[in-house]
Nucleic acid binder design. Structure first.
Lengths: 200, 200
DNA sequence: GAGATAAGTATGTAAGCACTCACTTTCTCA
DNA sequence: TGAGAAAGTGAGTGCTTACATACTTATCTC
């Protein structure tokens, strides 16, 4: 029943098992023994691939920081000055991404709370870029005279906060989704409130 | 230099030291040795007051769950159907509370992420009540015909999310506050966007 | 001021932890 | 086909952890 895998395959399997555990229990809350068990191998194998537990964790954070272009559809809408489209794209992307990979948000929070050295890189690639994209769009639309004159960065954080908080409730606090509202409807509501609220 | 305190005083001192450490490093990331050192006593003293480390942690969570009436000023504004006043009061209260006691938010997050058994009670007293208060106010104003017909709970989460996310950025991710905006101004902006966005 | 009571400590202890080492099994390819 | 390389393991090692025990010192009460 035991199968022998290539180095690459086994390494990936270890990483996958570790992602699951680290995201659920944090760095300190996860033991190398558990990771080995989850991957169906001996502890020693982990240390053949990663010098230390911390190195394994860092490899995960760096991998998760690789930034697929989340902002493609939003950037498209931005070029056409489609305000609703931009907000919708940003909101949906966050929803979709979190749904596809729920470990991401938990890892990000854990690494920040536990003060991991790479958490800033993680934050930079996953959060800051989004804030910057949206706030510069808002700034542009203020200059166009379409939005009220507000602090663009604070406003951007406000919109992102609606969505992030909503996801936080599920992924971290285990609140069940309102049965009536699909992610699309929720984003639509946040978008419409925010847009109506910021338009001149 | 060593002073002998009464049981009550010492107990409180242990709790204070533990709050600081648990909020910065989590339950698993904090050792009883560290707590003892921070309180300037021997480890054994901790176990004279609390049977286990977990019991100490639980005592803290329960204490932090004691719910001072956060909603007094908001409830007042609600009675007068002062929409701006309600939102402002809710937003400011969160800001002020977090500023006064930054450990609260981190403890709440840590306990939820680490899956502590009492984290639900904590969440209930600190978060859910706020959501329920605000969503029922919004529902009321929808019935009054003053707000658009939206999902009141989702909308409430949206507003709270703006503020919570803003605080999360500082307290957890260490983002520096925008130098131009005071907490009052930030709340004022969130309030105005949300209110304008949800009014009929 | 004696003796009870409570505050406080020094020194264990057993379990759990990240990590090591010496070793075996399986694969690869000249 | 055989030898070197790579995948894999069991059984440690020393350190740290939460917690226990047996003890000393200060304070209170009558």
């Amino acid at each position: 029943m035991k199968e022998r895998l290539s180095g690459e395959e086994r390494r990936q399997q270890i990483v996958d098992a570790a992602i699951d555990l680290f995201s659920r229990k944090g760095f300190r809350g996860t033991t190398t023994r558990e990771i080995a068990e989850a991957a169906g191998i001996s502890e020693a194998m982990i240390f053949k691939h990663f010098a230390t537990k911390r190195e394994l964790y860092s490899a995960i954070i760096e991998a998760k920081s690789e930034t697929e272009e989340l902002l493609a559809s939003a950037a498209l809408a931005a070029r056409e000055k489609d305000d609703a489209g931009v907000l919708r794209a940003v909101g949906l992307k966050m929803m979709e991404q979190t749904e596809r990979d729920p470990s991401l948000m938990r890892l990000l929070l854990f690494s920040a709370l536990e003060g991991h050295e790479l958490s800033e890189i993680f934050f930079e690639s996953r959060v800051r870029r989004l804030h910057e994209f949206l706030s510069s769009y808002i700034r542009e639309r203020i200059n166009d005279g379409r939005f009220r004159s507000v602090d663009a960065l604070v406003a951007a954080r406000g919109f992102i906060g609606m969505t992030v908080h909503y996801l936080l409730m599920h992924e971290v606090f285990g609140v069940k989704r309102p049965p009536r509202s699909s992610p699309e409807e929720v984003v639509e509501l946040f978008m419409s409130i925010f847009l109506k609220g910021i338009e001149r």
